[in-house]
């Protein structure tokens, strides 16, 4: 969604995989950057990088959610940790629909394809033989592009899902 006033456009969050090899940053609604610890990409293979991207996607979204609640707590001057439990069956159905939004994003050059369910479960597909044939800078750019498209699709679907009547 696109509103001029939304603070969501100014939020940023970073995350790293627990092994400290793969890093990501999300800025605003959908701008995503990915980078690796120096030397890692050269010696990795397609599957390993795909695993890291799947892990990173989940962590990045979690970090972004945390950042949102941190922002909100600061704004309202009281601690807000997250959503309440669904108060009505309709609300529960609506949340289920939200958590099951499937979004796909593919880089323009077709190197990377990402898919997510509710932004919490990720699947990354890398064109066979990409790593380390493709230059690292080009690959990370492709990751960013795929992620950006995925998030845009997710956001579009979310707006629709969120506006439906579930009662």
């Amino acid at each position: 969604m696109e509103t001029r006033f939304s603070p969501l456009h100014n939020l940023g969050a970073e995350a790293a995989t627990p092994d400290g090899t793969t890093f990501g940053r999300v800025q605003g609604i959908s701008k995503v950057e990915v980078w690796f610890t120096p030397g890692y990409y050269q010696y990795a293979n397609d599957q390993r990088i795909a695993d890291k991207l799947e892990q990173l996607g989940r962590l990045l979204w979690t970090a972004r959610t945390k950042e949102y609640y941190r922002y909100k707590s600061r704004k309202l001057n009281r601690v807000i940790r997250g959503e309440s439990r669904p108060e009505t069956p309709a609300q529960e159905r609506r949340r289920d629909a939200r958590n099951n939004i499937v979004a796909v994003g593919r880089s323009g050059d077709g190197l990377v394809e990402l898919e997510s369910i509710g932004l919490f479960q990720w699947r990354a597909t890398i064109a066979p033989g990409t790593v380390p044939r493709v230059d690292e800078a080009e690959f990370t750019r492709a990751c960013g592009e795929a992620a950006e498209r995925l998030v845009e699709q997710h956001v579009n679907k979310l707006a629709w899902v969120w506006a439906q009547n579930y009662s």
Binding site: S6, L8, G82, S84, W162
Partner: peptide, 12 residues
Amino acid sequence: DDYEGGRDGAAD
């Protein structure tokens, strides 16, 4: 903001 981000309100 919550609505826009696809979230329900917090418990409190």
